[in-house]
Write a protein that binds this DNA or RNA. Structure first.
Lengths: 265, 265
DNA sequence: ACAAAAGTGTTTAATATACACCCATGT
DNA sequence: ACATGGGTGTATATTAAACACTTTTGT
């Protein structure tokens, strides 16, 4: 019961907005967010579990998403969904693709769920997909507040999802891989201070390659966008590592648009 | 009058479809196409000129685009718009971004035009933008058939366009530039046989750089995706150039996904 | 003491860059 | 003959790749 309540609060908050500032839900356009996090070991995706509807729909997993409001942009809609779900703001968000197959809603349980949740359950909906990079430490969904309704899944163990959400996740990963090679987006997944080992494991687990430690360090440090801090790891059962931070100003000064981290396989 | 007639045929053909196969126009989602062509000298964009409406709207230029039908995918919608406009099929088409600012329709003349053309002129519309690469030789809009309604514009001399179409063109160019460095998309803009000089000018005019002839040839030929033909240029007032063709099988065999043409500035 | 990850350099191969002259054709 | 773009090679600098051992800490 608790899970259902929380979930309804999220899904219906646009209705609250509607009441307070006249915004109308657009029945044909939604946004979906693929939220990536990194726990220093592997890449994870945040999924929500739909509640079981009165009609007995199974509580299958899905991407967080919702219809947009008529007075908000696509980006604003995606931010709103993220904020409502995670409470986080100032999150890295990138639109990567629109999905509009006429039969992206075809499974019986998806239709049942829409019937239960939406005013116009049969409206043709196209969805604009975003991926988001969050510092996983900032938002670890706790069993107490979210029950079984929200959880991180390893990117390699995503279950069967609602609608076309498995395709969306897969395209999000491709986009992230491409962007990671070209722009310094990886730092969005790490805390403000991090070690080179953590950064390397991030690249390895997103690009699905193994990298040589010495070459990785040389290459990364030569870019001149990392600055060492006066601080080292503590409490680790091995030689403590130097902490670094990403220097945005230096990046913008040095490489105007060119990052180009293209590791060998 | 002729121009208006032709244009109406294009814009209303979805209505014809509606009558024949029950397809409904979706009032909230459109597709817009940025059609690129290359005349061996510079990159061009195909624009259409809206007819002057009875309300006296100026005949401003715009991207070809239209609302989608409820039974077609986004890709199919974009293909349909392209086919209706150019008569061409099997065209290279790539979705690159959705645009959904609530105020992307704000100029008086845009509103007047929608009022004239659409059933629900005030509906919030988000548009999914595609860029398309065509062999310009296959489709040179002739003054006789299109009058002043369709024309190629150099990418550097695009006039002020309707709605947010100037932003869309600019983002399309960025996407094309990015893709050209990473994938062999340039050949879509060239005829089946072309010279290395033509290919170089294509890269130069899209990426807006000057390239060294010798290095360009070495680099391009080393990829092993071009095959020389038994044919040379004829009728040119200089040493005739060797013709080449792009070999797709060879590309797919050799470079699995990696093209990486990253020229120096 | 041992386990575990941090940290460090050199050699070799591949790739990128800069650069200048002769060639074949149409007019 | 001349103008025009086609075609070619080499030397140098930069970047990528392969590779192994010592260090520091917690247990």
């Amino acid at each position: 019961m608790r899970g259902i309540f929380t979930y309804l609060v999220i899904m219906l908050s646009s209705q609250a907005n509607l009441a307070s500032n006249q915004a109308q839900v657009n029945p044909h356009v939604s946004v979906d967010c693929v939220i990536f996090g990194f726990d220093f070991e592997e890449l994870k995706v945040l999924l929500i579990q739909r509640q079981e509807s009165p009609e007995g729909t199974a509580g299958s997993w899905a991407l967080p998403g919702n219809l947009i409001l008529d007075n908000e942009s696509l980006d604003q809609g995606a931010y709103r969904v993220l904020r409502e779900l995670t409470g986080l703001q100032n999150i890295f968000l990138e639109q990567f693709q629109a999905f509009g197959d006429p039969d992206r809603v075809r499974r019986a349980e998806d239709i049942a769920w829409l019937t239960y949740m939406r005013d116009q359950p049969n409206a043709r909906v196209i969805t604009v997909a975003y991926y988001s990079l969050v510092k996983l430490m900032d938002f670890e969904p706790t069993p107490s507040s979210w029950a079984r309704n929200v959880d991180w899944f390893p990117i390699g163990a995503v279950p069967s999802l609602a609608f076309d959400h498995n395709s969306i996740v897969s395209e999000a990963l491709s986009s992230l891989q491409r962007h990671l090679r070209q722009r310094p987006v990886g730092f969005e997944l790490l805390p403000p201070k991090f070690t080179l080992g953590q950064l390397q494991r991030l690249y390895e687990s997103i690009l699905l390659v193994e990298l040589d430690k010495r070459n990785f360090r040389k290459k990364m440090l030569k870019k001149g966008i990392l600055v060492p801090l006066d601080e080292k790891q503590r409490g680790v059962p091995h030689k403590p590592a130097q902490y670094y931070r990403f220097d945005l100003e230096r990046y913008e000064a040095v490489a105007q648009g060119d990052f180009d981290f293209t590791p060998a396989v």
